[in-house]
Design a binder for these strands. Structure first.
Lengths: 149, 149
DNA sequence: GATGTTGAGTTGCATTATGCAACATGGCGA
DNA sequence: TCGCCATGTTGCATAATGCAACTCAACATC
């Protein structure tokens, strides 16, 4: 792999990742207009982790905390998120989807599920598993970003 | 696959795709601030296809043509894209990266290459190939979207 | 207990990304 | 020739995002 620079396989992977990133989001946006892609990502993460701190989301997506702050505030205003003080550290607020949030999340999940299921039509279960697992590895690796101070 | 609804494998895949979509973009944005993620995606597609029509890009990314129009216009103003009339259909303009565009693209490519190479550190060449190929299949399947009339 | 330091969020300000709908125009077919 | 249609473009509005300055509560030290 140390072809140093210019491994066409890697560059090809980059291309696919780029395309996926733009298209997947646009597609999701069309699929469930009730819950924007951003809101969907936040709610699913909170649900997944059974409560997330804003800072977690900042780290996960690698975006500015002001952005997360605003997006979470919007979700809260919309009644889709509840904030709870963390038991251990009172400075922190744990974010959870509200009942209504869970409901919207479930609906969007169903749509996304159907969508991805359709797009992987004809794949073997093993291929689906493999894609998921490789993406999970890639995403996890990405988490270990060099934090800019 | 026909678990109708609720296949956790599919839903897991959805989660990974969501995370990737948000993070990959943000990451690219930080990696090569000279060339925004959007500009990068457009230029690489033009280069890849050796000339792309605006409508191609609209279809590829599934976004509104007005958005593409503006983004291409910006690239053109910046001197990174040249427009040429298509030989067969004069209504169409073929978009190519300019020399300067190619230059910026190459620089961003190098950075992205390095980035992805790093994140797949420790992967077998086969795993990298597999991820690329599965993503390619997924992306291609996505192209066949039901066009909303 | 007062005080300075630090972590977690917020907010003002600016820019970019994107959608929708109306509009412009140059080809093409009847 | 005429009208229709495919390709784009533009006005208008909203969402997403970054940066930097600021608030505030919790901690640590003295």
């Amino acid at each position: 792999m140390q072809v140093a620079d210019g491994d066409p396989e890697i560059l090809g992977l980059v291309r696919e990742l780029v395309t996926l990133s733009r298209r997947f989001r646009a597609n999701a946006e069309r699929l469930h207009p009730d819950l924007s892609f951003v809101d969907y990502s936040l709610l699913s993460e909170m649900a997944e982790r059974n409560g997330a701190r804003a800072a977690d989301l900042v780290g996960l997506y690698g975006i500015n905390k002001s952005t997360i702050s605003r997006q979470v505030a919007a979700l809260h205003r919309a009644g889709l998120v509840v904030r709870a003080a963390a038991p251990d550290n009172r400075r922190v607020q744990l974010l959870h989807p509200s009942d209504r949030g869970r409901e919207l999340l479930a609906r969007a999940d169903a749509l996304m599920h159907r969508e991805v299921d359709t797009r992987t039509d004809g794949w073997s279960p093993d291929e689906v598993r493999t894609l998921r697992s490789l993406l999970a590895r890639y995403n996890t690796a990405s988490s270990a970003l060099p934090e800019e101070s």
